[in-house]
């Protein structure tokens, strides 16, 4: 079982008798510190998608499907192509990557886990954290070094991350792929 708060793109959960792949997660905070998790899910039997909301502590059955360690190879619109250690290639629909697509870039070395359902590659899970270079961000306004003042930054691949104000263009930053949050400058 996993809580809604622990889910991340690529996980497959069982709801109402159907397997659903998590395409996107968005965690926010309601009153009194309670987490609210909004999920975009794809039904693997019906090929339909839905948006749904859970309390952060809601528990759900995650399905352990076949997985393979792979590395990203290339993008052939609309498929991301991954390759295992034996040079077998697997196509994953861009839509199924959800938020994870923002961290997939040419030449990335991190191992990803490709998940299979009935022999078909259906999703990809990234490592918990990845390191990416900041390609654009505004200069710090007042030289804040506390890490509490935040600003948007564009990273390699075109994704946007909210970073501490002291982060500069060219810095490499660690990002939590589950939440999309900036962790630290490396």
């Amino acid at each position: 079982m996993k809580t809604a708060h622990e889910l991340r793109p690529g996980n497959v959960i069982m709801l109402d008798g159907s397997p659903w792949v998590v395409q996107k997660t968005e965690t926010t905070r309601s009153g009194r510190n309670a987490a609210i998790v909004k999920l975009k899910l794809k039904n693997l039997l019906q090929d339909s998608t839905t948006e749904t909301t859970f309390k952060g502590e809601d528990k759900m059955e995650d399905i352990i499907l076949d997985r393979l360690d792979c590395t990203y190879s290339y993008y052939a619109d609309p498929m991301y192509v991954f390759m295992d250690a034996e040079y077998n290639q697997y196509d994953v629909e861009a839509e199924n990557l959800g938020d994870a697509a923002a961290y997939i870039v040419d030449g990335m070395e991190e191992n990803c886990q490709v998940t299979f359902y009935e022999g078909k590659a259906i999703s990809v899970e990234l490592p918990t954290s990845v390191v990416r270079e900041v390609t654009y961000t505004e200069p710090a306004a007042r030289g804040d070094t506390s890490g509490k003042v935040m600003k948007p930054a564009t990273i390699t691949g075109g994704g946007t991350v909210t970073v501490a104000e002291f982060v500069k263009i060219g810095d490499k930053i660690e990002i939590d792929t589950r939440t999309g949050e900036f962790k630290k400058r490396v």
Partner: peptide
Amino acid sequence: EGCHALPSLQA
């Protein structure tokens, strides 16, 4: 706005 009125599919 994005979360209002969304269903929550219970196990």
